[in-house]
């Protein structure tokens, strides 16, 4: 069992500002369902740039919910400029500390806030490509993100990076690369600029898009024939689905898979996608 501070427990059991903010005019998002935690930050910002109200919705563990709650408390009443300077450290401080394996929950708060600030400035959400080179495919983390979090929090080992931003925490195949980023960071005192944009969608982005298109477009069409579809997994460009209801066992199901599901996803998400049945 995790050792949570009293403040974390309190903010988990009695989160401040949880739920939908009806008249929000700025939204920021971070995380994904696939990764196990996600945060949607909703702000009401007035014409002077002051955050009049802030609410959140979070899918995640106790420390993710507590971090979101702390974040909203920290930024309410601040101007967007002030809020933009907030980092995960203040969230951790506010909560009286987090277990080291849970630091990524506070980083998710910082990322959602960053996303909101961009929207407020009229910029689109930062795509991972602008963020630098993709290092961890499992969690969609780039070198820029790793460098940022490592510098802000003085991280020196791969394990610490995993605790803060998850990179390296699943298949582990990116660990060597994380290590070499840390090595470079240590050997340089001047800021490391490593922008080699790769115009390619990360797993997480692809997964989110696939999820949306399946639920908004494909599922309704199958429902017309009494069928149903479930997204099982997205692994690189392979999308695993399960056909249910009238679709399952139907000998036209292979056709449905190729002609409808795969075709739609290729058109709307990525031409490299192949769809297989679970």
């Amino acid at each position: 069992m995790w050792e949570y501070t009293e403040t974390v427990r309190d903010h988990f059991l009695h989160p401040r500002n949880a739920g939908v903010l009806e008249d929000a005019n700025v939204i920021g998002e971070a995380g994904s369902l696939a990764c196990g935690d996600a945060l949607k930050l909703m702000l009401k910002v007035n014409s002077d740039g002051v955050i009049e109200d802030a609410r959140f919705q979070t899918f995640g563990c106790a420390s993710a919910i507590a971090s979101s709650s702390a974040l909203t408390e920290l930024i309410k009443g601040k101007t967007m400029e002030e809020a933009a300077r907030l980092t995960n450290k203040e969230i951790v401080e506010y909560l009286g500390g987090l277990p080291k394996e849970k630091m990524h929950c506070s980083v998710m708060g910082e990322e959602a806030l960053e996303d909101a600030v961009r929207h407020w400035k009229g910029l689109p959400s930062r795509s991972r490509e602008e963020e630098g080179r993709l290092v961890c495919k499992c969690f969609g983390v780039t070198d820029r993100q790793i460098i940022k979090v490592a510098k802000e929090n003085n991280l020196s080992t791969v394990e610490e990076v995993t605790n803060f931003i998850k990179a390296g925490g699943a298949c582990g195949s990116c660990k060597d690369e994380i290590q070499s980023i840390l090595d470079k960071l240590r050997s340089l005192d001047k800021p490391l600029e490593e922008i080699r944009p790769v115009p390619r969608m990360t797993n997480v982005q692809r997964m989110q898009k696939v999820m949306r298109i399946i639920s908004e477009d494909i599922a309704p069409r199958l429902a017309l024939d009494g069928g149903n579809i479930e997204l099982v997994d997205v692994d690189g460009t392979t999308v695993v689905v399960a056909l249910r209801g009238a679709c399952s066992g139907c000998n036209a199901s292979q056709l449905t898979l190729k002609n409808l599901v795969e075709k739609t996803l290729r058109e709307q998400v990525d031409p490299a996608i192949t769809v297989v049945e679970a």
């Binding site: 196990g36 935690d37 394996e101 969690f139 995993t162 997204l231 099982v232 997994d233 695993v240 679970a278």
Partner: peptide, 18 residues
């Protein structure tokens, strides 16, 4: 979050639980 590995259970994943 409870497995300590950042990934859900290997059993449920082997079963293809979404």
């Amino acid at each position: 979050c409870t497995s300590g590995s950042l990934e859900p259970s290997h059993v449920l994943r082997a079963m293809g639980v979404p």
